[in-house]
Simulated assay, not measured.
Amino acid sequence: MNLKCLAISLATTLTCGICTAQTSQTAVSDDFKPSTVNQPGQEYPQVNSQGYARFRIKAPQADSIRVSLGLGGKGGTRLKKEEDGFFTGTTEGPMDEGFHYYHLTIDGGVFNDPGALNFYGSTRWESGIEIPAHDQDFYAVKEVPHGNVQQILFPSKSTNTARRAFVYTPPGYGNDKSKRYPVLYLQHGWGEDETAWSNQGHANLIMDNLIAEGKIKPFIIVMTYGMTNEVKFGGMKNFKIEPFQTVLTEELVPFIDANFHTLADKAHRAMAGLSMGGMETHTITLNKPEVFDSYALLSGGLYSPAEFAGKAKPKLIFISCGSKENPTGVNKAATALKDAGFNAVSFVSENTAHEFLTWRRSLHELAPLLFKN
């Protein structure tokens, strides 16, 4: 995988994964509502139907506050101090639909917005904001049977620790003790952790809704922390895959098969990842073709036919990205794989960049393709 391209993509994530439009000539609609990921009872931040975000922060002793979202000059949207001690402001333009990380810079210090919930990204707990998406129904909370996301600890002799993972089990799991399920191992991006796919990505809700609609056969999802050595941004060339590969394939996979009702064979095992997790997926699936039979890179690089020389063809190769990333490269890679006889599928998320709506949509497209007879 091209690490330079990955670094560019990761930089996009670290600047909140948004693509703000030029200052709009259209009037800003005054239909602002609290973001759906605000702290309970908090009115701000707010978003409107056009995708603008509005902020109100009480800091009477502060001199300046800048929000890392939006244009607003260098570093985001500058807020204006009012006589009542509140700082207020609105992004200069609309933002991409979906979820974004952000923080406040108050007199040079970095802080979270007390009105917003926090999400682990950019190697810290960041504030989050949700810009309503026109297609958000596929990850909405609905009156359907819901699966369960549980935290597990598994022993890791290679790292001499007990490591954590989150496991999604579908509705009805465990009711029939004889029923076994396929498993998708789903990796987060750089700067995130094993909470990302359920908190920011709504993977569990996407699965619940697809299962309720009869579009997929139920399967388990396992999400674990993808780092064994801490690598700072810009140092990805120093990342060594072998330690995490050992944790995943020699420790976590056997633990899941021993403790959950799984179909414990290659044909019923898939690996996918976003961004850095895609890089991990790309490397591990090529190194360990006997473990996984379906591979998916979500804004996380490409496969080429040459990489599979002398290896068995996987059941599925899925490659995706946002339309503001590398759609030409993704589509060309899938075409080359198809021409070489692989079952390859590409997906491009419209009007998104290196951000969670791209990856929510990607999982929604990927899930029905997995574990077909």
Rank of each mutant, 00 (worst) to 15 (best):
Asn343Met: 06
Gly108Asn: 03
Arg54Met: 05
Cys16Met: 10
Thr169Tyr: 09
Leu286Arg: 09
Thr358Ile: 05
Thr224Gly: 08
Gly17Cys: 05
Phe342Tyr: 15
Glu213Arg: 14
Gly235His: 14
Ser320His: 05
Ala196Pro: 02
Gly75Ile: 04
Lys74Ile: 13
Thr23Gly: 12
Thr249Ser: 06
Lys315Gln: 14
Pro254Leu: 02
Asn38Lys: 03
Val67Ala: 04
Ala367Asn: 10
Thr249Asn: 08
Thr249Gln: 06
Ser349Glu: 13
Val222Lys: 06
Tyr303Trp: 13
Leu3Ser: 03
Tyr181Cys: 03
Arg180Pro: 00
Thr224Ile: 08
Thr123Gly: 07
Leu337Phe: 00
Ser35Phe: 04
Asp339Ile: 06
Gly214Pro: 01
Arg164Phe: 11
Val231Ala: 05
Ser35Gln: 00
Pro368Val: 07
Arg361Trp: 09
His188Gln: 14
Gly76Arg: 01
Lys372Met: 09
Ala7Phe: 08
Arg269Cys: 03
Arg54Cys: 05
Gly310Met: 09
Lys315Cys: 02
Thr249Lys: 07
Val167Arg: 02
Glu43Arg: 14
Ala21Asn: 12
Trp125Pro: 00
Leu366Met: 07
Glu194Ile: 09
Gln39Gly: 00
Ser275Ile: 10
His146Gln: 14
Ala336Pro: 02
Lys217Gln: 15
Ala196Lys: 07
Thr246Asn: 11
Phe342Met: 10
Arg269Thr: 15
Leu3His: 00
Ile221Phe: 07
Ala59Lys: 13
Phe55Met: 03
His261Ile: 05
Gly201Met: 12
Tyr102Cys: 04
Met1Cys: 07
Glu126Arg: 15
Ser299Leu: 10
Tyr101Trp: 12
Ala53His: 04
Met279Asn: 08
Leu79Asn: 00
Asn48Met: 09
Ser64Tyr: 12
Gly115Ala: 03
Arg269His: 11
Leu302Val: 12
Thr249Tyr: 01
Pro171Ile: 11
Ala140Thr: 03
Arg54Pro: 00
Lys324His: 13
Thr249Leu: 01
Ser156Thr: 10
Pro314Val: 01
His188Met: 01
Gly201Phe: 04
Met207Gly: 05
Thr91Gln: 00
Ile211Gly: 07
Leu104Ala: 03
Asn160Phe: 08
Leu302Arg: 11
Gly226His: 08
Glu213His: 01
Phe87Gln: 02
Ser24Cys: 10
Arg54Gly: 00
Pro94Ile: 05
Arg163Glu: 04
Gly234Asn: 01
Pro145Phe: 09
Asn326Thr: 15
Leu3Asn: 06
Leu3Ile: 15
Leu210Cys: 10
Glu92Asp: 15
Thr15Met: 11
Asp135Trp: 07
Pro170Arg: 09
Ser127Phe: 03
Gly301Phe: 10
Pro45Val: 01
Thr281Trp: 04
Asn343Val: 11
Pro314Gly: 01
Phe342Asn: 06
Arg180Thr: 12
Asp193His: 13
Ile241Trp: 07
Ile220Pro: 00
Ala336Thr: 12
Lys177Cys: 03
Gly214Glu: 05
Leu117Trp: 01
Phe233Trp: 11
Lys237Trp: 10
Tyr120Arg: 13
Thr169His: 03
Asp135Tyr: 11
